[in-house]
């Protein structure tokens, strides 16, 4: 017998567990059943629907205040708790389509890309002609923004993410865009690679997930170390290595 039974269960032979002989139901009646159902539902609702989420909110605010509030970051890419200074969340992607920024993965959210109040994917089937048409348009846009770059395009840079809010892209997708950004911001490709490496993470513990680059943080860093447009007459790769570090 468990210590939890208390006085309700003085008679050992009436244990509801195991293979012991058990006695027949003592109480019945529709009203008793309704009462039990109603009270149990109410108590469980309070416990799991109000107490549990509220207690977790309280503990989370103390232990992990930044994450609990949505992992907000400011313009310098630093974690912030202030909604006023926040320019986004480290976990949520933003849309960039100017050629001097790294482009994120395509987003199918509606009505605008990276709508973080309405997540979702394109739900286009693998043989849907619309999917093929979208891919062709995206190939064209990337090629137009970087005439002469004929490297094969990494698949994740052409396909919309499941959430439409993917904060990351593959390292290959970032590398593909290096020539364009290097030219427009007058940076050396080697320096850009270094910058990409700073915002690359994963797989966690070398095992879990994929290796990815956080595009929003990378673009914020880009604006800090090599603002666009570059100062008039600035030499190619005008950024001192000290400012990257």
């Amino acid at each position: 017998m468990s210590a939890t039974d208390g006085s309700a269960n003085a008679d050992e032979s009436n244990s509801p567990g195991g293979r012991r002989q058990t006695k027949l139901p003592r109480r019945g009646g529709v009203l008793a059943m309704l009462r039990a159902a109603l009270v149990l539902l109410t108590l469980c609702s309070v416990l799991t629907g109000i107490v549990y989420p509220l207690v977790m909110t309280g503990i989370a605010r103390v232990l992990f205040p930044w994450q609990a509030a949505g992992s907000l970051i400011n313009r310098k890419g630093q974690p912030t708790l202030s909604r006023r200074s926040a320019i986004g969340s480290a976990q949520i992607g933003q849309y960039f389509n100017q050629p001097w920024y790294f482009w994120p993965r395509p987003s199918a959210t509606s009505p605008v890309p990276y709508n973080a109040a309405a997540s979702g994917g394109s739900n286009l089937g693998p043989t849907n002609p619309t999917l093929i048409a979208h891919i062709k348009q995206r190939v064209q846009a990337l090629r137009n923004a970087d005439i002469g770059n004929s490297a094969p395009i990494p698949v994740d840079l052409l396909t919309s993410s499941a959430s439409g809010l993917d904060p990351d892209e593959s390292v290959a997708a970032a590398y593909y865009q290096i020539p364009r950004i290097a030219r427009l911001r007058r940076m050396s490709p080697a320096r850009l690679k270094k910058l990409i490496a700073r915002y690359t993470s994963g797989p966690q513990f070398g095992l879990l997930g994929e290796k990815v680059v956080n595009v929003l943080e990378l673009n914020l860093a880009l604006d800090r170390v090599a603002p666009y447009p570059p100062a008039p007459g600035a030499p190619f790769d005008h950024v001192r290595s000290s400012t990257v570090r």
């Binding site: 994740d156 052409l158 993917d166 593959s170 390292v171 290959a172 997708a173 590398y175 997930g209 994929e210």
Partner: peptide
């Protein structure tokens, strides 16, 4: 490859692959 998970990435997240 070492730089990308590749595969069918439509409707998938980069960090998950």
């Amino acid at each position: 490859t070492a730089l990308q998970p590749g595969g069918n990435m439509e409707g998938k997240e980069a960090r998950l692959g």
